[in-house]
Write a protein that binds this DNA or RNA. Structure first.
Lengths: 148, 148
DNA sequence: ATAATTAAGGACAAATATATCCGTAATTTA
DNA sequence: TAAATTACGGATATATTTGTCCTTAATTAT
């Protein structure tokens, strides 16, 4: 559904929201290991998410790293997709028709309509913080290795 | 959601199901024009769909072209995804975690679960013929140009 | 038989996504 | 101030997707 870049972005953000705080920033290496993603590529993605402090924040130097503000925690998950320029996936026609709409539907439109709306609702109504909290029950995971 | 190749495959198949018959085969040029896709690339995709007559059938020579059997019309839309080796999109974890499951869920799993199931149902329960029939009402379209 | 038509299929080209590497800048600690 | 740490950002490499081109094979009509 999403590109690898966006998958890593979602996982990284959730991980940072769960594990970091203002005085406990997470380094690139820790993050890439935790979410099981290629380190250098993850660095690029974290940069995108950091642009204008939109999703996550960063600090250089010793004890530097990535963290997330209280304000950003309240952002809808869709904000991550937007930062990755991939939120159009949510609205997109299944057949890839740019003009597909209610008045000019593709043959899948009426059947897909409600699924699409639920997808949009999911990404717009659930916040980054919500997903981080889903991780606190000890059952839910973000890597293919068990969380500790 | 799907690759361009799969989008073209879906559109081409629906178009062929709507317009072709055993004695009215459709040529590559006609199809590519109708679904607004690059011709040569579409040729490759039609070849994939034709392999073993799985989705569509073809005939060479004058009055040759592509058509679809009555049997193939009854296939679920998912069969097109399978022919394009892209049906895993339906089952895939939103975060791209290979081990995400009911017993080892990612933080989005419980929220996405029912959406995923509806997606699977859509592609498994609706047939190619069904989508072709959706096109017969004069309102539904398959290209970004109005059907005639 | 020959010519015309049309899909099949291989080779290649271009664009995009994924990924790595390395020097630089900022910050902290000693 | 010097050294260590960590993110930033540019350049480059690799893989995949998307797309084109051309020759061949099959079929039909003349």
């Amino acid at each position: 559904m999403f590109s690898k870049a966006t998958e890593y972005a979602l996982r990284a953000t959730i991980h940072i929201a769960k594990k970091s705080s203002k005085n406990n920033k997470l380094g690139l290496e820790e993050i890439a290991t935790a979410i099981d993603s290629p380190q250098s590529f993850t660095a690029k993605i974290l940069q995108m998410l950091t642009k204008n402090n939109k999703i996550i924040s960063s600090a250089r130097g010793p004890n530097g790293g990535f963290f997330i503000s209280e304000k950003a925690r309240k952002l809808p998950v869709r904000a991550i997709l937007e930062a990755m320029s991939e939120d159009d996936v949510l609205e997109k026609c299944v057949l890839g028709l740019s003009q597909c709409s209610e008045t000019k539907p593709c043959p899948m439109h009426s059947q897909y309509k409600s699924i699409k709306q639920q997808l949009i609702n999911l990404f717009e109504n659930k916040t980054i913080q919500y997903l981080a909290e889903e991780m606190t029950d000890g059952i839910t995971f973000i890597s293919n290795k068990k969380m500790i």
